[in-house]
């Protein structure tokens, strides 16, 4: 899940709604899609910008931890697969910024908010990728967690967001399978490779659980987003689903989920498991994760170092247009 703690408005009862708001809510309740030029409450628009923007930022910052291993990928094939994957992430960023643009905010504005620390990206990308097994674990766990959230978002009420999600989900599930394939290879490999695989699971398990955001009891602003079908499931529902799906996959790999309290609960038909350390989560969101400074610093540097490049393209386009106009006279 690439959007955590997205601020939304307090929800309104039907009696409190204006006739326009009521008609809008009824369209959503009927399952209609809202399209860019149509009327929407300001709160809906703002919440969507925050959520889609955060998701887009997560995709582009998310290039960095995986990009970290492209030049060290162990075979030509693994290198090609990883390159293709990181390229997909950039592509997802592009769809999502485009979806956000339909709500009246430019990509440049969103980038500036990111760089100024006024918009967030998923906490998971503030963790380092320390061994090659992390390329497997990121695909398996991080993309796996993202899919849990994004599959239901294919049915979200905002048309452009929903359509972006449909494309993204296809690619993400491919990424997850690739990640798992790396894990299989490592888990069946030499003792050193197995150690890498277990170590990656140990480090990334709880950060992956944090991706779904805080527990429902502590999650603010969820009700309105759910009424608007911007958020489709609660954080705890998705986290439970993720654990239930992932534990058997870890067992198949012969790896141990780093949770002594993990236990199948027959009655609820799911696993009982330990909560992540939420103080760590809030520390990471506050900028104190292991890689916050490096990740944001890399994005800011890329943006600033590239200013001359972007400016030159604009100036060239203006010159070319002027020349065409002159030729037409």
């Amino acid at each position: 899940m690439y959007a955590q703690l997205v601020k939304s408005e307090g929800s309104k009862s039907r009696e409190e709604m204006t006739p326009e708001e009521l008609a809008f809510q009824e369209r959503i309740d009927r399952g209609e899609k809202i399209e860019p030029k149509e009327w929407m409450p300001e709160g809906y628009r703002k919440t969507l910008i925050r959520q889609i923007g955060q998701h887009a930022h997560s995709e582009i910052v998310g290039q960095l931890p995986e990009g970290n291993w492209i030049t060290r990928a162990p075979t030509l094939e693994r290198k090609a697969i990883l390159l293709a994957k990181v390229q997909d992430e950039a592509g997802h960023g592009l769809y999502l910024y485009s979806a956000a643009e339909t709500l009246g905010v430019s990509r440049d504005e969103l980038m500036e908010l990111l760089h100024a620390g006024k918009m967030k990206y998923s906490s998971i990308f503030n963790y380092p990728t320390l061994t090659w097994a992390d390329m497997g674990a990121v695909g398996w766990l991080v993309d796996g967690a993202a899919i849990m959230n994004q599959v239901p978002l294919q049915r979200t009420s905002y048309g452009p967001y929903s359509r972006a999600m449909i494309r993204i989900c296809k690619e993400e599930s491919f990424h997850q399978r690739q990640g798992y394939a790396i894990m299989m290879k490592m888990a069946q490999g030499t003792p050193a490779q197995k150690r890498m695989a277990q170590d990656a699971l140990n480090r990334l398990w709880y950060p992956a659980l944090m991706m779904f955001g805080p527990s429902d009891k502590d999650s603010v602003h969820s009700a309105q987003s759910m009424a608007w079908k911007i958020k489709m499931n609660t954080n705890d529902e998705l986290r439970q689903k993720f654990v239930d799906q992932t534990v058997p996959q870890a067992e198949y790999l012969g790896l141990t989920v780093p949770d002594p309290n993990l236990k199948w609960n027959e009655e609820k038909g799911g696993y009982d498991f330990s909560e992540p350390d939420w103080s760590e989560f809030y520390d990471v969101l506050a900028g104190n994760g292991p890689c916050n400074k490096d990740r944001l610093g890399a994005r800011v540097k890329a943006w600033e170092d590239g200013a001359w490049f972007r400016e030159a393209l604009v100036v060239h386009a203006e010159k070319a247009a002027a020349r065409r106009a002159q030729a037409a006279e």
């Binding site: 582009i60 290039q63 960095l64 990009g67 492209i70 030049t71 290198k79 090609a80 390159l83 293709a84 990181v86 390229q87 950039a90 592509g91 960023g93 592009l94 910024y97 990509r107 890399a298 540097k301 890329a302 943006w303 170092d305 590239g306 200013a307 490049f309 972007r310």
Partner: peptide, 21 residues
Amino acid sequence: SEWCGHSPALEEDIALANVAL
């Protein structure tokens, strides 16, 4: 591929990854 994620615009990240690939 060293540019991955560090280029001046998102379109360039995509294009460079494509060339490297």
